[in-house]
Design a protein around this nucleic acid. Sequence first.
DNA 1: TCTGGGGTCCTAGGACCC
DNA 2: TCTGGGGTCCTAGGACCC
Length: 401
Amino acid sequence: MTADAPRICCLDLDTFFVSVERLLDPSLEGKPVIVGGVPGQRGVVTACSYEVRALGVRSGMSLTEAVKLAPDAIYLPGRDREYGRYSARVVAIAHTFSPLVRTASIDELFMDFRGCERLYHRAGDAHADATIERVVRELTAGIAAEVGLPASAGIATSKPMAKVACGLAKPRGVLLVAAGCEASTLAPLPVRKLPGIGPVAERRLSELGIMTLGQLAATPVRTLEPIFGAYAKALRERARGLGDWDMGRDRPAFREHDPDGEVLGSISNERTFMADVRDAPKIEGILCSLCERVCWRARRRGVKARTLTLKLRYADFETLTRSRTFAPSASERDVLPVLKALYREARQRKRAIRLLGVALSNLVLDEQLELFPADRELRASVDSLRERFGFDAVRLGSSLK
DNA sequence: TCTGGGGTCCTAGGACCC
DNA sequence: TCTGGGGTCCTAGGACCC
């Protein structure tokens, strides 16, 4: 099912992290910039400027590979707090244009302009589609003028189609796909361009000789079912531009609680070590610090967790998870013993560890604080310091190396 | 020194209850 | 003694997104 006219807008900030770094340091303008880490670190490219894309660098690429292609680029570690601040300013501007805004990620949001045509209509507009396109251009211009960030937008009858259109519009462009033109717009594109088709699906489709979305749209559902199961029909509809227009939910950081007190989403932190680790006390310390971090984030969100998951990646990249469910808590006092028990059960001595991660899920609204009073007082002051200065401003003794 | 870190969603099997 | 379902919760893993 789709909206009957192109009124769903996908807005995406171009090379977002790089653009923010350039606002904070204008001398980076026009230079090759890579955000994600500095050479020698373990990491991947999270964002890169068009100057290094010309050299073949892509986001998601390992830092070592990027260094080979662009040894002279400027490498930056990234600073999430700043990115979050700029993102929030863009979201605020979007809200002044449409009552229905959904954040999809830190640099991408969807807007629904259905019912807004008359509100925005001007004498010069040829038709309602032209009105919406003009308004979206005003939106991207407003973001450029007020925040200084370049943005692109796609407008279509469904979310997936709007997202693809946004990709086609980059950089700094706006593209409206008129109702009825979806299939022909998608047909020549490689299957990988469709949201929901990743590297695995791309490979399996290519084994069937299906390379383009036009070919996918013409493939019988029967043929696709072995690969995609129950998802096959919806995926083929999507390839025809008929995807869902349901606006869905905000990402967790912006999301309100459900009325029944249940909270969706999860809170996780993980860390890959500069060098693989065997040292037991060091591992204990890291687990402790990860535990503190997720518990602190849960308290800040006003939730408790019922499920804890430990993630463990060995040096050979083999990855496993172990989880346990318990009475709702956001206190290290409860969570840390569970985490340590999971680790004791999961670890294989002698194998070096590359990554440790901790996730809280099965979240519920924290209605009453039921902590030991002394504990609560200490933690309240720790949390308030962190509110002002960031998580690392205060560390508990147990997580210090 | 190939392969980060934050997420969402889906599947599938087993336990357990009625 | 043999052999049912349906429903829900828990756990593990994997694809995908930015």
